[in-house]
Write a protein that binds this DNA or RNA. Structure first.
Length: 428
DNA sequence: TCTGGGGTCCTAGGACCC
DNA sequence: TCTGGGGTCCTAGGACCC
């Protein structure tokens, strides 16, 4: 009998990624508390270690920590996704120099398959990767190693929290260290167990990762679902998740935003829906896809319990699949008009394209559109917006920018030095 | 006053069919 | 009064992730 090759995974996770990115190009931020904000100046979505130490929470609304931010001289930055995406790509390329089989899990996380490196000193390999990424990109990373992805994730968390590990930690496989480590992990800190489930687990008396490994898997499945069961098995060292090295084509594409101020008129709402539909279609074409279904959704402000609540979506098929802005736009507005109701204060609207296809389009048997003409038209539209700046040409339905009262608030937005004439830096 | 955006997967339940 | 059962497909909603 041949024993299955032993698996070994690593998770490379960038420390405080967005905040670290801001520091790469502004070293004066080193040692200072830095936070990066979400859209609409809403929430804190990244914090440097110094900001975490001040007790500023992840996802905390800015208005709740405004006092601490002002008092402690915290540097506040808006998200610069173009920059983060570019640095992310460089981090991935650097890691790829050392390990061939990698899965880009998110903008700041990469799983590695270390099984082929079995003969090597894994600790040394990880320290080399960590040092090189820091040197080549300026981004600090932590690395966790384990026999399953879930254990690698847990080891990563330990690497980040224990200074002695100096950024690299391997999940122990031998007793009693293994059990002791599992016991030190609260159920709420297990990857794949969120707020709702951890509350339910705690009610059942399951408080740590070790407790979870001691529940029969079928029991976990019965009380939760197969995802939770896999998590429990992975904590116990049974791999249930492979490394996904091939990037699967996306299934959905969403464009949505909260409004700067609440909206009641159909006119304002229709401009927002038209804007999202236009952006979604642009993105779809940029990726070479076509959509077979479109949905539009509207929400009131869920935090305003004093106001009547309303959230609804409408959906319809796109036959044949399409990437043509006018087609998508018309459908989006029809759907939006169908679900809009007078008398509500709307806070958010969005457009979702789904049933996406990325292969060659099927010939439409039952439609009479001139597809060659559509394609030329969209080609010209995209080219103009690419060369002359985003939104140079837009459908009239998006409305006039100066009248878009629903637009995001962006009081903290830094100047768009490179994309807006009026924001060009000047010298005197 | 002020609370992000974009994804995936799973399951329950209804519609429909034979 | 008694009121099938099983399969498939679809969708909405709920959970999770970063």
């Amino acid at each position: 009998m041949r024993r299955a090759a032993k698996r070994m995974y690593a998770l490379v996770d960038c420390n405080n990624f967005y905040a670290s990115c801001e520091r790469v190009f502004d070293p004066g931020l080193e040692g200072r508390p830095v936070v990066v904000l979400s859209n609409n100046d809403g929430c804190v979505i990244a914090r440097s270690q110094e900001a975490k130490d001040l007790g500023i929470g992840m996802g905390e609304p800015i208005f709740k920590c405004r006092d601490r931010i002002d008092a402690q001289g915290v540097v506040v930055r808006s998200s610069n996704y173009t920059l983060y995406q570019d640095l992310s790509r460089r981090v991935v390329e650097t890691i790829g120099q050392f390990v061939p089989d990698i899965e880009v899990y998110s903008i700041d996380e990469v799983f590695l398959d270390l099984a082929p490196m079995a003969g090597r000193d894994l600790d040394e390999l990880c320290r080399t990767i960590r040092g090189t990424v820091r040197q080549w990109t300026g981004i600090p990373v932590s690395i966790g190693v384990g026999t399953t992805k879930t254990l690698a994730k847990a080891a990563n968390r330990i690497a980040k929290r224990t200074p002695e590990s100096r950024g690299v930690h391997r999940f122990p496989e031998d007793e009693p260290e293994r059990s002791r480590t599992l016991e030190s992990i609260g159920i709420q800190d297990v990857w794949g167990i969120g707020r709702r489930w951890s509350r339910r687990f705690l009610d059942l008396g399951i408080a740590t990762a070790l407790d979870l490994t001691r529940v029969p898997p079928t029991e976990v499945r019965r009380n939760f679902n197969v995802v939770a069961m896999r998590t429990a098995l992975e904590l116990d060292g049974v791999p249930c998740q492979e490394l996904e090295t091939v990037v699967e084509p996306r299934q959905t594409l969403v464009r949505s935003r909260s409004f700067g101020e609440m909206v009641t008129d159909w006119t304002d709402l229709s401009e927002a829906i038209a804007t999202h539909a236009t952006r979604a279609a642009e993105k779809l074409r940029a990726e070479g896809g076509r959509a077979g279904r479109i949905s539009v959704f509207l929400n009131t402000n869920r935090f305003r319990e004093d106001l009547p609540q309303y959230h609804r979506s409408g959906t319809c098929e796109l036959l044949p699949h399409t990437d043509v802005t006018p087609v998508i736009l018309r459908r989006a507005l029809e759907l939006g008009r169908g679900i809009w109701r007078e008398g509500f204060h709307y806070k958010k609207a969005g457009v979702m394209l789904s049933e996406l296809a990325f292969e060659h389009p099927q010939s439409g048997l039952f439609d009479d559109r001139d597809h060659a003409r559509d394609e030329r038209l969209m080609g010209v539209l995209d080219r103009i917006n690419r060369t002359m700046g985003p939104r140079t040409l837009q459908p009239a339905a998006v409305g006039r920018p100066e009248r878009q009262r629903w637009q995001m608030k962006r009081a903290h937005h830094s100047p768009r030095y490179t994309t807006r004439w009026s924001d060009l830096p000047r010298t005197r």
